[in-house]
Design a protein around this nucleic acid. Structure first.
Length: 473
RNA sequence: GGCGACAUAGCCAAGUGGUAAGGCAGAGGACUGCAAAUCCUUUAUCCCCGGUUCGAAUCCGGGUGUCGCCUCCA
């Protein structure tokens, strides 16, 4: 049974889909006004692995992640770049696609854009107006928070408590200071659409309600995003959606913890915002992915070069284990398993169970990763033994790593690229030198290949070679 | 001020009642012509003080510390 922490109840709860066997997930995606940063990346990676894992567990998953392509930030950016809002969106959506692909993040089933769902947004606003939960003032439409008794339930506060800490601008046109905009009246030079309340554009919160319900129905199974979206964004989404439908908006609310840099919050004013775009120049994106998954998704994590280095070494160990397996598998035959091998197969089976147990428990990726290391040790012990290993033992283990990697996606299997003949020739030369104990020639050849990113290893089973970490694209 | 999170070895990090997973780094050893890869050994008064319990890192109370949200920030 899969259990997920629900922000709404502050407890882990069993995952119970609305429709048996199906899961609808909506994650708040980026406002496409700039390259996304590693804090965003943590959220995207978390949801990517979540949707992959649920599919692994047999659910038919529909995953939706929106692009916010019209809002104040978009408009401001368009002015800065002297291009249209739409062109800003196009530019940063394609950047998003490139950067997420590098991080091994699969495209969602749908990536809806607010500007392409204006009719759905207007219909939802109209529904709220009809129910007297929203009102129009001079071309703006506001949600009336007092009309929704549950307002504040996600962030654990009631209206008075929210008010006491809030720095709110007094707007005499609003019935309550916390009332928020569903529709904003057109301003000169800004994108706008026809509506029953005149030309204007949607507020931020309403797009997610409208689009999520459009693609996934009125009750989602899982909805989430970064922790800071709890208030006001998700609080407002609940108010709008449940106000309109009188049904629970989402069964589970999943919020990903913050990522800080050198123990400081990332912010433009501190000048420490790190985009994935920049990071990709020097860091293997798979290391970033591994790093993000090596801690539980809800705990705040810290980002620094040192931690990345640690993650890189750890990931390298896993890659080596898979390489060791694969390389040996090519050279061995089938055979009847002996006792030690039967034990290894047993260990393999219990590893799978432990992986599922960890992941089922609120998505404990750190615990699940540990299983891979533990199995790796057993595998390497087996590979070290002097007698021949058997293909029918190695293959299921390798398949297991591949199976897990369908979920985690950070293990990279090496491909070779047309260097075989040349490398093999050099290896032959070196073997010749070694045979006559000409160590300096042998070492020179090895060093020469190393400079080109090729590592030679002498094993009891013969010489093998591989690309150095980071040299295989 | 209100709401909330977190505090586990040099570092990162699992672990919600039965005397502490995993990774990185360090030290020693095995293997190797030397390496590489791998294996073995080795490192924890679980922030502090009370309480509950036969038994607590884990539950309760009180501290201390770090951080977040309450500003259309993931």
């Amino acid at each position: 049974m899969i259990k997920l922490y629900n922000t709404l109840s502050r407890k882990k709860e069993p995952l119970k889909p609305v429709k048996e066997g199906k899961i609808g997930i909506y994650a708040c995606g980026p406002t496409v006004y700039d390259y996304f940063h590693i804090g965003n990346a943590r959220v995207f990676i978390t949801f990517d692995v979540l949707r992959r894992y649920l599919a692994y567990r047999g659910y038919d998953v529909t995953f939706v992640q929106n692009y916010t392509d019209v809002d104040d930030k978009m408009i401001k950016r368009a002015a800065e770049l002297k291009i249209s809002v739409d062109e800003v969106a196009e530019r940063f959506i394609s950047a998003y696609e490139e950067d997420t692909a590098a991080l091994g993040i699969l495209p969602a089933d749908y990536h809806p854009r607010a500007t392409r769902h204006i009719p759905q947004i207007i219909a939802l606003i109209q529904r709220l107006i009809d129910k007297k939960m929203a009102y129009e003032v001079e071309g703006d439409v506001y949600f009336r928070v007092e009309a929704f008794p549950g307002y504040g339930k996600l962030s654990g506060q009631n209206l008075e408590e929210i008010m006491s800490g809030a720095r709110v601008e007094i707007d005499e046109r609003k019935k309550h200071p916390m009332d928020f905009a569903l529709w904003k009246k057109e301003k000169p030079g800004e994108p706008s659409w026809e509506s029953p309340w005149g030309r204007g554009r949607p507020g931020w919160h309403i797009e997610c309600s409208a689009m999520s319900m459009h693609y996934l129905g009125e009750t989602l199974d899982i909805h989430g995003g970064g922790q800071d979206l709890i208030f006001p964004h998700h609080e407002n989404e609940i108010a709008q959606s449940e106000g309109a439908t009188a049904k629970p908006f989402s069964r589970h609310w999943v919020h990903v913890g913050y990522l800080n840099i050198d123990r400081e919050k990332m912010s433009k004013s501190l000048g420490n915002v790190l985009t994935v775009r920049q990071l990709r120049e020097t860091v293997d994106p798979m290391v970033i992915r591994f790093f993000m998954l090596s801690a539980h998704y809800r705990t705040p994590i810290n980002f620094s070069g040192e931690y990345l280095e640690q993650a890189s070494r750890a990931l390298e160990r896993l890659n080596m284990t898979v390489y060791n397996l694969k390389e040996r598998l090519e050279k061995v035959q089938e055979g009847l398993p002996d006792n030690e091998e039967k034990e290894l197969l047993g260990f393999l089976q219990s590893s799978r169970e432990k992986f599922i147990e960890a992941m089922d428990d609120d998505f404990n990726t750190a615990g699940a990763i540990a299983v891979l290391f533990e199995l790796g040790r057993e595998v390497n012990i087996y590979l070290n033994r002097p007698e021949g290993q058997k293909a029918n033992i190695l293959r299921p283990v390798l398949d297991f790593y591949r199976e897990i990697n369908d979920v985690f996606g950070f293990i990279k299997e090496q491909g070779r690229s047309g260097l075989e003949a040349e490398v093999e020739a050099l290896i032959a030369q070196r073997e010749e030198a070694r045979a006559r104990k000409d160590w300096s020639t042998a070492d020179a050849i090895r060093d020469r290949l190393k400079d080109r990113g090729i590592i030679l290893e002498d094993t009891p089973q013969g010489v093998r070679w591989r690309m150095a970490p980071g040299k295989d694209g």
